[in-house]
Amino acid sequence: MTLLEFARGPALQWAAVIFVIGMLWRTLGLLLMLRSRPLSKDRKKGLAGAGVKTMFSRFLLPKVFAKRVGFQYLLGWIWHVGFVLTVFFFQVHVMFFKGLVGFGWPALPNSVVLPVAAVSLGILVILLVRRMTNPMLRYISNFNDYSSVIVTILPFATGFATFTHIGVLPYETLLALHFLSVALLLVWFPFSKLFHVITVLPSRYILGVKFWRRGVEA
């Protein structure tokens, strides 16, 4: 079995299996945990609505924090948009998903996706360098943080190498590495902080409800 066959076949298959198991495991495990409920009277009505509102209002940064956190927020924003566009709207990726789920959707032209992917990759590298050089970030960072960013960078880097076919390695090796890096991302995803895909919005909901109970828009 060549590397590419392994990557396209068993590697992706097992990675997807681990991904699905891991995601459900952690999500359900969290969901099933006991929850304590407050007994005191709420100051405001419409808790659920307020929770949902916080889920979305936290996408925007309150103005008072703009000076200190604005740059970071902006990077985060661009990265996520870039990620979604690259992963789900690059021609070749749409084919992948079509192969997987049986239907495709319109893709973006390469002339759009490639610069977007380049920017996303660039931002990830900036985030990583920032994490390594900013004393505060370095202090709070652990293996989970570094590994998660690196594991996310890899598919972008190998993807670029594959597409542009630069580098000393032959195409099929690059493509195999690209698949393998995606497999690694899938495996790493449920067990690392990348799991934030699932937790961020509920977490916002929780605080939104908690604070609206007290009459505060969080």
Binding site: G9, V20, I21, L24, M95, G99
Partner: peptide, 17 residues
């Protein structure tokens, strides 16, 4: 297309699920 997985199918994923 080359960019598709060869062994991945809904059955496996469902089982994993």
């Amino acid at each position: 297309p080359l960019s598709t997985a060869t062994h991945l199918d809904a059955g496996t994923v469902a089982l994993a699920g």
